[in-house]
Design a binder for these strands. Structure first.
Lengths: 141, 141
DNA sequence: TTGTTAATGCTAATCATTCTCATTTGTAAT
DNA sequence: ATTACAAATGAGAATGATTAGCATTAACAA
């Protein structure tokens, strides 16, 4: 199984909670999950992990580069599988739909803006908060 | 005094705590302040306001459009005077220096990216986390 | 199979922020 | 000026997300 390899090569011992969390993300049903989301989903599938462990595992995975953490507006943070290519996010304020996008020009100009001001870019986050135009966006997530 | 006008036209009753908070921001010594920062600065100048009041006032000012709230990496949020023109931020991860910038192309392409995907932009936030190149960045804020 | 070390699962603690509510203050009308 | 009343304040409790502490359990190498 795929997950095992990931854990090993990340220098993480392969434990039951870690495998479950990882395969949750790899199942791909929801790309963006908060710790609470993960916890609930695991409980729902009968898997019995502690919330503290979920937090720990998510942070370890982030450190190991398996997941990326995002802070959408305000409160809780969400994680997504790290698939190599950086991208930014558009979040619908009504239904919570999250769309990913990448714009090379934006990336470039960011680097430039930083360099001009005496900074070396380490990281950056761009979130667009918006409203769906489509009619199917009438329900709250 | 200037502050009084601002409060009035924002539909806010002019009270002692509100005037103090507002003039703190208008003094311009620090553009970006957290609730905690404001609280401490007021205490330091012998002004005796409650932390809860600081939070309340900051949020009211944000609602009223006098201040803008930002969520830099992670935890606490910071406020800055709203001077009309939107801008993005570069934050030094070492010393905490915050630099503001505006790039019309970036703005434009954001709008475009959103529109193409069926979103109407409501708001957006772009933070660049970086390291100062300059040598004077050797101290923590 | 065993032993050691790291990982887990509770629960309590922490941190930022909000809420409650009794007391005080601004203000518009007297 | 005074009064009257709603709105604002302050202190501390409450909340929500996240982390820490610690006794118990599970990986994995020998």
């Amino acid at each position: 199984m795929n997950e095992l390899i990931h854990l090993k090569s990340a220098g993480l011992k392969s434990t039951v909670p870690r495998l479950k969390v990882l395969s949750l993300f790899e199942s791909g049903n929801d790309r963006h999950l908060s710790a609470e989301d993960v916890y609930k989903k695991l409980l729902a599938s009968g898997d019995d992990v502690g919330l503290a462990t979920v937090y720990r595992v998510l942070n370890q995975f982030e450190q190991a580069g398996l997941l990326v953490k995002h802070h959408f507006e305000g409160d809780k943070s969400v994680f997504e599988l790290n698939q190599g290519e950086h991208h930014d996010h558009i979040v619908c304020l009504q239904c919570g739909r999250v769309e990913e996008f990448y714009d090379a020009t934006i990336e470039l100009r960011q680097k430039k803006a930083a360099a001009e001001r005496g900074f070396a870019v380490h990281d950056h986050s761009l979130y667009i908060y918006a409203n769906c135009i489509k009619p199917q966006c009438l329900y709250k997530s």
